[in-house]
Structures are given as C-alpha cells and as structure tokens.
C-alpha cells in the first residue's frame, strides 16, 4: 500500500535536477565551469549575481519584463471581467461563436504573428515601448482571462444578481461593490495566469523591443549566442527568473489546476 510515494518523489527529483544544475552553475566561476564538471561549486562565488545587480543592461531587463507583465495583467483582467460576466449570465446573438473565436486566439502560434506585429506596432509608433508588448500579449491573455473568469462566475448562483437588482443596485454598482469581491479568488487566479503567460513568452516580446523595453529573456539570449563564454552569468540570470514565479505559485497552489482547466474543473 504505502509504496505510493516513490513515483511522485522520483518525478519531483527529475524536475529538480536541471534546476539544480542551473543553480550550481550560477555559483561557479567561468574557469571552473569550462574546466570540467563538478557536482558542487568548488570555488563558491557570488560574482555572477553581483554583476547582474550592478549592471543596468542586466537589471533593467528584469524591470522591463515586470513592467509590461504588470500592465498586461491589469489590462487583461479589467477588460475580461465584464466580458466574462456577459458570457456567464446572458445569451446573445453570436455568443458561442465569439467565445470560440477568443479561444482560437489563445491557440494561434505566435510565430505566425511575429512579423505583422512588428510592422503594426512600428506603424502606430509603439515599437520598443512596454505598452507594445503588453498590448501584444493581450492577444492570448485576454481570451485566457475571459475563460477562467467565466468558469468561476458560472459557479456563483444567479440569485445574487437578482437580489441586488431588487435592492435597487444599478448594474455597475452591483458589479463593483458585490460581484467583484465575491469572485476575488477567480480574479486572483486569472491575474496569476496572465502574469505567468506574459512572463514566460519571449518571441513577441523580443520582436517588439530593441533597447528601451528589452525583456530579461532577450537580454539572456545575448550571452547564449556567445556560447560557453558567460555560462555562469547566463545561469545566474536564469535562476533569478524562476523566483517571481515561485513566489506567486505559492499563493494560488490550490487553484492552479482550475486555472489550467480554463475554470472548468
């Protein structure tokens, strides 16, 4: 009976190994890395991290990424809230097709859009700004937020709305004062997923920026191309990108499956 823990343990071990490899490498000096493999850092060093935190081209990458991720999350969730309410409460002409069309955007390969996006955002003079990336990521994050929120909202009985309207609440007052606090958990999960997908995406973020809004992910590709030269730095930068995700995961751990199921567990 109780040999069940073996499989999850092995699985988690498998998940942790590459992360461990990355972490140890970030504490090694370049000479040690190129000198050969070792399981623990021989000459423990924090130089790689110090470099990242003192060199503006590096730490600006993190700041840029965080800025557009936050803008995107705010736009996506605030726009998706009323739309999700409409989908979960009303029937209207073309509602199902609209919902499906939103889904197709969630599934559209970013590679298809890279070049037209570049031209579009250059044309409206948003190229290399945080807004460009935030708006572009709306393509897949708004549909995602609508889906997740719709799932959460469908779980709330319609009586809540009806009672409030009987009590003389106007739509917007009811929506902001009563409804939004009721689905706070859903909003949290939707925001988390928007954060996550905007944080992990690189292709569009890289295409739409050059200097001023360059995301950390794109800064990293610079060292990756000079292969082997600054592996320690690359490893340190990579390790640092895991931290924001690890922190937010903790808060939504019980809802994360519901989010991935687009609100439909």
């Amino acid at each position: 009976m109780n040999r069940k823990w073996i499989l999850p343990t092995l699985y988690i071990l498998f998940l942790m190994l590459p992360i461990y490899g990355l972490l140890t490498m970030s504490f090694k000096t370049t000479n040690e890395i190129l000198g050969g493999f070792s399981f623990f850092p021989q000459q423990f060093t924090l130089d790689n991290y110090i470099k990242i935190f003192t060199d503006p081209t590096w730490y600006n990458g993190y700041i840029n990424s965080l800025i557009y991720v936050v803008i995107n999350t705010v736009i996506s969730v605030s726009v998706a809230l009323p739309a999700a309410y409409a989908f979960s409460r009303y029937r209207f002409l073309g509602d199902k097709h609209l919902f499906f069309w939103l889904l197709t955007n969630r599934m559209a390969p970013p590679a298809v859009f890279a070049l037209p996006f570049f031209q579009l955002y250059s044309a409206i003079e948003l190229f290399d700004t945080h807004f460009a990336v935030a708006l572009a990521h709306c393509l897949f994050n708004i549909p995602l937020a609508v889906w997740i929120l719709e799932g959460f909202m469908s779980g709330i009985p319609k009586e809540l709305d009806e009672t409030a309207y009987l009590d003389g609440y106007s739509f917007w007052r009811f929506f902001i004062r009563i409804f939004v606090p009721t689905i706070a958990a859903g909003i949290g999960v939707a925001a988390f997923f928007c954060f996550m997908y905007s944080w992990v995406e690189l292709l569009l973020a890289k295409t739409l920026t050059s200097v001023d809004a360059k995301p950390i992910a794109a800064t990293m590709t610079r060292t990756a191309s000079t292969s082997g030269y600054e592996l320690g730095l690359l490893a340190a930068a990579g390790s640092l990108t895991i931290i924001p995700g690890a922190i937010v995961i903790y808060f939504v751990r019980n809802y994360i499956a519901k989010g991935f199921a687009l609100g439909r567990v």
Partner: peptide
C-alpha cells in the same frame, strides 16, 4: 509542497527552459 514543486517548471520563461536544458 508537491503542488508547488511540480508547478515550478510551468513558470519558468521558455527561453530559460531551453537555456537550462542546454547547460544541463
């Protein structure tokens, strides 16, 4: 603990996943 550890790979930027495996 299991849930958090398991969800960790999902939140790593995709190019870091590639770079991590490249190094690994």
């Amino acid at each position: 603990v299991c849930l958090v550890l398991m969800a960790l790979p999902l939140l790593i930027p995709w190019n870091v996943v590639g770079a991590m495996w490249n190094i690994f």
